[in-house]
Nucleic acid binder design. Sequence first.
DNA 1: GCGACAG
DNA 2: ATCTTGTCGC
Length: 236
Amino acid sequence: MGCSPPMKRYETHPALAGWDGTIRDARRLQVDLAARVALETPPGPALRTLAGFDVGFEDGGSITRAAAVLLDADSLQPLAEALVRVPTRMPYVPGLLSFRELPALVEALGRLPAVPDLAFVDGHGIAHPRRLGIAAHFGVATGLPCIGVAKSILCGDHGPLRDEPGAHVPLEHEGEQIGWVLRSKRACRPLVVSPGHRVSMRDALDRVVRALTRYRLPEPTRLADRLASRRAATAD
DNA sequence: GCGACAG
DNA sequence: ATCTTGTCGC
């Protein structure tokens, strides 16, 4: 027989519609959802709001904390924030991050006083083995334009990157560009930026660059990261 | 078979 | 991700 090891089934969630709870089906679903990712930026008026999303953990990982921060797109000043604490249901499995963190992120989105025009999600967009990182999954699940901002590469390769802030090179995988490696700050490890949903490759990079201030992370991501990790603002 | 592997 | 102080460099 070919199914001796009892396959584990994790608890599902509305945000993960179509998933039967198994690791194997999660990978199958990723391929299906990746086909629904839109890689064009729809025409429209200038963005008014942005939102940053990130997840952190408490109690050794038993509690998942999802943070969402809404900001004014021009001033980059925070307008509102939401924090959700829920029991962790699945372990971290490389390539399946969204099945662990997406439910909490969607809950946090629902607690913001307004829907953002563009979301910055901590993790990869299409810069993923099956082109469905958590930012792309978040985008397809919510329908919101979204960009993935990761702190390290999951897959793909790239050429040399200059140390000047703003320097960037394409991140490629299996013959296609899946994102950008961006030097957001001098002498700091570069960020990996990739389209999540309803944003073009070029606009994903431009939007992140425009949201940078004096730190390594773009403001939406930096504020969400701080809130999710229960760290306080540095005096300044 | 071996190494890699977002958060 | 998280456990954790000081320290080196831009």
